[in-house]
Simulated assay, not measured.
Amino acid sequence: MDRDELAAFLRDRRERIRPAEVGLPAGPRRRTPGLRREEVAQLAFISTEYYTRLEQARGPRPSREVLSGLVRALRLTDAERDHLHHLAGAPPAPPPGPPREVRQSILDLLTRLPGTAAIVTSAIGEVLAWNDLAAALMEDFSALSRRDRNLIRRVFLDSRQGALYGVSDGAEFARDSAQRLRAASARYPDSPEVTGLVAELLAGSEEFTRLWEVYDVSVLPTLAKTFQHPVVGPLTVNCDALHVPDRDQRLILYTATPGSASEEALRLLSVVGTQRMDVSG
Rank of each mutant, 00 (worst) to 15 (best):
S47W: 09
Y50F: 14
L35D: 09
G34H: 03
R37V: 07
Q42L: 15
I46N: 03
A44M: 12
R37G: 10
R53H: 11
P33R: 04
E49M: 07
R29G: 03
A44I: 12
Y51I: 08
Q56K: 13
G34I: 11
R37A: 01
E55D: 09
T32R: 14
T48S: 15
I46Y: 04
T52Y: 09
R31M: 01
Y51G: 06
L35P: 11
R30Q: 13
R37M: 09
P33Q: 01
P33E: 02
R36S: 01
L43R: 15
L43A: 15
E49P: 00
R29W: 15
P25G: 03
I46T: 15
T48L: 00
P28S: 14
S47F: 09
E38H: 07
P33D: 00
P25S: 06
S47D: 05
L35N: 08
T32W: 07
Q56Y: 05
Y50N: 02
T32K: 11
E49A: 13
R53L: 13
A26C: 03
A44N: 07
L35V: 13
R36W: 07
T52D: 04
R31L: 08
Q56I: 09
R31A: 05
L43W: 06
T48V: 14
P25A: 05
F45Y: 11
E38N: 01
R53S: 09
I46L: 15
R30V: 03
R53T: 07
Y50Q: 02
S47L: 12
Q42M: 14
R37L: 07
A44V: 09
V40H: 08
R36Y: 06
Q56E: 13
S47Q: 07
R30F: 08
P28G: 08
R37E: 04
F45A: 14
T48I: 00
T32H: 06
A26F: 00
R31T: 04
R30P: 11
T32M: 12
E39M: 03
A41F: 12
G34R: 01
R29P: 02
E55R: 11
T32I: 14
Y51M: 08
I46R: 08
A26M: 05
Y51W: 10
T48W: 00
P33V: 00
V40N: 02
T52K: 05
A26I: 12
R53V: 02
T32Y: 08
Q42A: 15
R30G: 06
Q56G: 11
S47R: 03
R30E: 07
L43I: 12
L54P: 07
R31Y: 05
Q42Y: 04
E38M: 05
R29E: 11
L54Q: 13
E55F: 09
F45E: 13
P25N: 03
A41L: 10
R53G: 02
E39R: 03
G34S: 01
Y51E: 10
Q42W: 10
P33I: 06
Q56S: 06
A44F: 10
L54Y: 02
A41S: 14
P25I: 01
P25W: 01
Y51D: 05
Q42P: 00
R29S: 13
T48D: 14
S47I: 08
P33G: 00
G27W: 00
F45W: 11
G34C: 12
Q42D: 13
L35E: 06
A44L: 09
A26G: 11
V40W: 05
T48R: 13
R29I: 00
